Amino acid sequence: MPRPTETRQWVLAKKPAGLPVLTGPDATFRLETVPLPPLKAGQLLCKSLYFSNDAGQRGFIESPVPADRYYINTVPVGAPMFTGVIAEVVESTAESQIKAGQLVMSLHMGIWAEYFVMDEVHAQPVVENEKIAMTHYLGAFGGPGLAAYTGLHYAARIKPDDIVVVSAAAGATGSVAVQIAANLVGCRRVVGIAGGPDKCAWVRSLLARGNDNGAQHACVDYKSPSFAEDLKRATEGGNATVYFDNVGGPVLDAVLGCMALAGRVAVCGAVSSYNNAAGTPMAVRNWFEVINKRLTLQGFILLDFADKIPGAVAELMEAAMGGRLALGDEGSETVVEVGIEGVPGTWLGLYEGVNRGKLVTKLVV
């Protein structure tokens, strides 16, 4: 196959006022065809195979805090949208052992493009395993799973006697978090929060895996009119000791009212507010519960625990091989196959809840 000389890529055309727009004069992204430059020393020309779809990518477009305080650089208008990626190396000038024909991944340094150039320092070789689909390097063994692992273990300091609540429990991070708490740590009670009966039923099936301590786990539906009462009942009368928060907003509000004295909250995300118009506050009525119950709130990002990642990956892979962490055909990911034209729309499906577990784009070039 001859070396490609150009590629199609999605660039940020306009910062959105709220939910990103796919078409029309206010479209958030624009598809462009651009030339592929010759490689410099230490670079890889990559063919995109899979893209990671993460709610936190909304912050790549426009930071939720003043830009000079944000922990990453945002995408400038006119620049390609970046993402986690699994790719095939087409050409290499790397000084390492990465050669043409190898598969590599990057947590955040890929872009929405058919082909792209990446510095070798940002690429990690993908170790193929016939029993584990490579897409899980973007999910359970990638950013979402590692955020769940490090957030629970090091931000929330989880223990077996905890009553743990996890929001967005049917999502990429939450679905791994409930399994870590229930099936790896063996917490005495784990309560997932998800949207709708089908997703709640699926979360309950995850909680049942490897459960050998007789724990009575649960999942409650935040869309139900009885959500507040169901959550209180599931947390044994409002005595949750740990909350892994992915969403903020009304769900955070409800859980704050169900926390035990000296409870710990690991704050991973706030997806309920990511697409709010600029300046729109996130209302929380139960904030005084932080004082009332003397709660500890710990915000974190995965890179805070970079030195823990190799051990976390090893433990998660062992759990998957042993059947205590659901993967593959058991429905822990949603893979959508599209051409480059469908990439932004697939990502936006996250905010409509189209996925169960990790949402992955399989790119057809």
Rank of each mutant, 00 (worst) to 15 (best):
L12H: 04
G101C: 13
A147P: 00
M118D: 03
N53G: 04
Q57E: 12
V90R: 02
G145Q: 08
M109F: 11
L45S: 07
A27L: 03
V89F: 03
G139V: 08
G101S: 13
V65G: 04
H136C: 06
K47H: 13
Q9P: 00
A140D: 04
A79T: 07
D119S: 12
F29M: 12
A79V: 06
G84P: 07
A123R: 02
V117Q: 07
E114A: 06
K47F: 05
V11W: 01
K99A: 14
P37S: 12
E114T: 15
K15S: 03
S106H: 03
G18F: 10
T83D: 07
L36D: 07
K99C: 09
L103T: 08
T5M: 12
P125R: 10
P35A: 12
L138W: 05
Q124C: 13
T83V: 13
L31E: 05
M134W: 00
I98D: 11
I98E: 13
L22W: 08
A79L: 01
L22V: 14
P38D: 15
S63I: 02
D68C: 02
Y115L: 07
N53S: 14
V117K: 05
L44H: 08
Y50H: 13
W112A: 02
L22C: 10
V21S: 04
S52T: 06
L107I: 12
G101P: 12
M118P: 03
L36Q: 05
A113N: 07
H136A: 11
R58K: 12
T28M: 05
L12P: 06
G56M: 12
T150Y: 03
R30F: 00
L39Y: 06
L31I: 05
Q57R: 00
Q9K: 08
I111L: 00
Q9W: 00
L19N: 08
G42N: 14
A148H: 01
K99W: 04
A123Y: 03
A148Q: 00
G42I: 03
M105N: 12
T7G: 05
L44V: 10
S48T: 15
G145D: 10
L146T: 06
R8F: 08
Q43A: 07
E130H: 13
Q124R: 13
S106E: 08
P144D: 11
H136L: 14
T28G: 06
W112Q: 06
P66K: 14
P35I: 08
T5L: 14
G101N: 14
L31R: 02
G18K: 07
P35T: 10
Y149G: 02
T28F: 05
A123S: 08
Q9R: 15
Y137L: 14
L19H: 15
W10I: 04
M81Q: 14
W112V: 04
F82N: 15
H136R: 04
K40H: 13
I72F: 10
G101K: 12
I132M: 03
